[in-house]
Amino acid sequence: MMTAIEFRDVYFRYNEDAPWVLKKFNLKIEENETVAIIGHNGSGKSTIAKLANGLLVPQAGDILVNGRKLTASNVWEIRQNIGMVFQNPENQFVGTTVRDDVAFGLENRGIPRKEMIERIHTSLTQVGMENYQNHEPHNLSGGQKQRVAIASVMATYPEILLLDEATSMLDPRGRKEILSTIHDLKEELEITMVMITHDLHEIILTDRVIVMNQGQIYKDTTVDHLFNDYQGLQSIGLSLPLTVELAIELERQYDYQFTTYPLDNEEFLEALWTSNLKE
């Protein structure tokens, strides 16, 4: 298996007087992995995505994409394979209409017009926005704009998709829309996906969870094992999903045994059902 993204002893800070955001940071993300990077605001998680496609340049250390070291001369070429969705839906919408916005990345890559039209249609269908081709951004909800941003990226057929807090400015509906879109993409395509988030609900979609704290990896684990150390997570300012809190209480007060902590209602009911039968 190939390594999609690799950080080797990376140091980064925004300017010389500022503290290090990343300090001797090492990370390997394999091809077709779905990884969540979580942490509270200011833990350095967002910087990782911007470094990975060369929007920021580290002060020391190497960043490798698909095994190739990222340099000033190959950054444009490498970036062609990386799609990135940013936090603010408003500030990444370049086109005056939905289809213009999806076209933007394709136009930059010199895709012929005929193919462009096909790709725009396909990628907008993927995110359920095919009926909005001629809509202008100010008539769309935050969630819809963010789905267009995803379509824009998917139309360029990236190998790696970076979602940099893509849901944090959305209302609950918008958040759900995006999560189900991401879920569908993951089912349909083989793609390396990195989700940067502070919302613990989002990690359900991932295989692997990296918890960031103060510019370092605090924990690198799987979704199933993440909450085994719930005290640790709380101590670095992360809050627990309700179902995990309840499960912890059930264990503490009544000796219930959960093999893994339930992350959503379905898992909670399932676990409760099984343990209820056992008693």
């Binding site: 496609n53 929007l55 076209a103």
Partner: peptide, 27 residues
């Protein structure tokens, strides 16, 4: 200014490097 900065970053991430080699959707 903040918007302009973020937009520039988003455009760069989407591969915008000026008019050279660009195709056009609008016709």
């Amino acid at each position: 200014f903040k918007r302009a900065e973020e937009l520039a970053m988003a455009m760069e991430a989407r591969g915008y490097r000026g008019s050279e080699g660009r195709t056009k959707l609008r016709k």
